[in-house]
Computed example of a mutant assay.
Amino acid sequence: MRNNESVYQFLEHLNGIQPLGLEAKNAIAGLCTTVRINKNKDLQSIGQTCKTIYFVKEGTARIYYYKDGKEVTEFFAFENDLIIRAESLFASMPSHKAIQAINDTIFIAIPAEQLFLLFDRFHDIERLFRKIVERSYVDTVNRLESLQFNSAVERYNLLLQHSPEVVRKIPLKYIASFLGITQVSLSRIRAATP
């Protein structure tokens, strides 16, 4: 489904990351569609190959997988955040992870293969997506380092600092899983946090 207003707002957001010429904006707009996913439903399921680049337009989403029979939340995405399963997209292989809408969520979807074809024609588009992927990579490294070097309390406080909306919008079981702690431990930390 196309929604011109949503796509226009999204393009303005992208233009803030990397200025885009009118022709480049029109080329991206021609690829964009909006996808609505209901609360707790998967946008992409485990076992699918990721062929689309998604951004959250409205709502909240997460990437999750199963380890030893337990569900693990790897990533949260909020408004204008990129959400892809990079290991699947770039290797063209099925993923062990899924993308799920935490609440009713609208995504902007861009078919990756068609987008990549634009890179040779529009270097501003190539630069834009390089910057987006670089930001995503740095965020991933920061998350891994936080799991390695910070205590559970420090990880929770960092999450509050960077994403206070998490506490209001996301079930505690997902937050606990994301932080690498139990829900009981999270409840104790929250009770002790002013």
Rank of each mutant, 00 (worst) to 15 (best):
R127V: 00
F116H: 03
L89A: 11
F78Q: 05
L118F: 06
F76C: 10
K70I: 04
L117K: 14
P94G: 00
A101G: 02
L82T: 02
A109G: 12
F122W: 07
A101Q: 02
L115K: 12
A98G: 15
L117M: 08
G69A: 05
K70R: 09
F129S: 11
F76S: 10
T105A: 14
P111G: 02
L82C: 06
I125A: 12
A112S: 15
E74L: 08
L117I: 00
V133P: 01
N103T: 11
M93F: 05
L118G: 07
S136E: 11
A86T: 03
T73R: 04
E134M: 13
R130N: 12
V138E: 02
S88K: 04
I132V: 09
F116A: 00
I102K: 14
K97Y: 03
M93A: 05
A101D: 03
Q114D: 11
E87V: 01
F78G: 08
P111R: 00
F107L: 09
A112G: 10
E74F: 02
F78Y: 08
D81F: 04
T105N: 14
Q114I: 00
F76A: 12
V141W: 00
F76P: 04
L118M: 10
V72G: 03
F78I: 03
T140N: 06
R130L: 02
L115M: 13
E134I: 15
L117D: 06
E113C: 03
Y137P: 03
E87L: 01
R135K: 15
D120Q: 13
E113W: 03
S95V: 05
E74W: 01
H123Y: 14
A91W: 04
N103D: 14
K131N: 11
I132R: 04
I84P: 02
E126Y: 14
K97V: 04
I106F: 03
F90K: 02
I108D: 09
F75Q: 14
F122V: 06
L89H: 10
T73G: 13
E71S: 08
A98V: 11
S136C: 05
S92N: 14
F107M: 07
N80L: 12
V133C: 07
